[in-house]
Amino acid sequence: MRTLLIERAAHMLRTREPITLRSLVAGTSVSTMAVYTHFGGMDGMWKALRQEGFTRLGARLATVTTSQDPVRDLTALVAAYANNALQHPDLYRVMFDADFGLEDAQAADDTLEYLVQAAERGRRAGRFRADIQPLELATQSWVIGHGLVSLVATGPLPRETLDYGTTLLTALFISSGDQPDTCHQSVEDGWKQLLATG
């Protein structure tokens, strides 16, 4: 029942239907009391909706296998982020709505940590300069993925816009110390994950 309500609320957001306690349960076999039982009210439901978005993102990032190529892995994580947004556009829209907190704020931090670890591996392997801060590089990578997919998943641009990801990530990683030829191949290999599961 909890999942049903979360999915329904996300769908209503996407279709721009007004969400009230009554409209949320309309047409279902669920009573308004269920919203209080499972979420403590509408504010709790919004928190749960955001939480579900980060939970699904974390689960998606966890499926990215670690290879011997950390630049490929970092790229694959950005591709997985984009895939998650495309597969769950309703939840993606509300994930970054700061009007409501999260039930578990650490879950959001944990998603970024996947990228931080890949960036750290890249630095240790000599692919990135020693002075590169993994958190900064991970954040910059995330920004590229977020910007592109926001324009596609919930915005006005066609899916082909995501093709710019390889160019943008390659430029970022080369500026961080990676060698152009090696970098280009790693990014291409990682970005293929977007096509493989998208």
Score class of each variant (00 low, 15 high):
D97S: 09
A119T: 07
A130P: 05
G198S: 01
H184A: 14
V149Q: 00
R127N: 00
D97F: 11
S23L: 02
A108T: 10
A196R: 13
V187F: 02
R8Q: 01
R124K: 14
L5N: 05
L24H: 13
L151P: 08
M95G: 11
V143H: 15
P89M: 08
S31T: 14
V94C: 10
A59G: 04
M45Q: 00
G198E: 01
P18I: 05
P156K: 11
T66A: 15
Q185N: 01
D189N: 13
G177C: 04
V35H: 09
A138E: 07
A118E: 15
T111D: 00
T3Q: 14
A80H: 13
L172A: 07
G147C: 02
E120K: 13
R14W: 09
V30S: 06
R2E: 13
G122T: 06
D178P: 06
P134E: 04
L57V: 04
A107V: 13
W142K: 04
V116S: 13
L169D: 04
T65H: 09
R8C: 04
I144S: 12
A119K: 01
P89R: 05
L61Y: 13
L162C: 10
P70F: 11
G122D: 07
T3E: 15
A125K: 00
G190M: 04
Q106S: 09
L49H: 08
R60D: 12
W142M: 11
A9K: 07
L91M: 03
D99N: 15
R159E: 07
T37P: 03
V64H: 03
P158E: 07
A82L: 02
Q68F: 12
R121M: 04
D73F: 04
T65V: 14
P18C: 07
K192R: 15
E188L: 15
Q179A: 13
N83L: 02
Q51S: 02
E136M: 14
D90I: 09
D110C: 05
E160Y: 08
L151R: 13
A196Y: 10
T197A: 13
G177N: 01
T20D: 07
H88V: 00
M45D: 00
F39H: 04
D90W: 01
D43L: 00
T66V: 15
D69P: 01
D131T: 00
Q193K: 12
D163C: 10
G101A: 07
A10G: 00
L4C: 10
T161M: 08
T197D: 14
D109T: 14
M42I: 12
G40D: 02
L169I: 04
V35P: 10
Q179N: 10
P70H: 11
E17R: 02
I132S: 08
A34G: 11
H184L: 09
W191A: 07
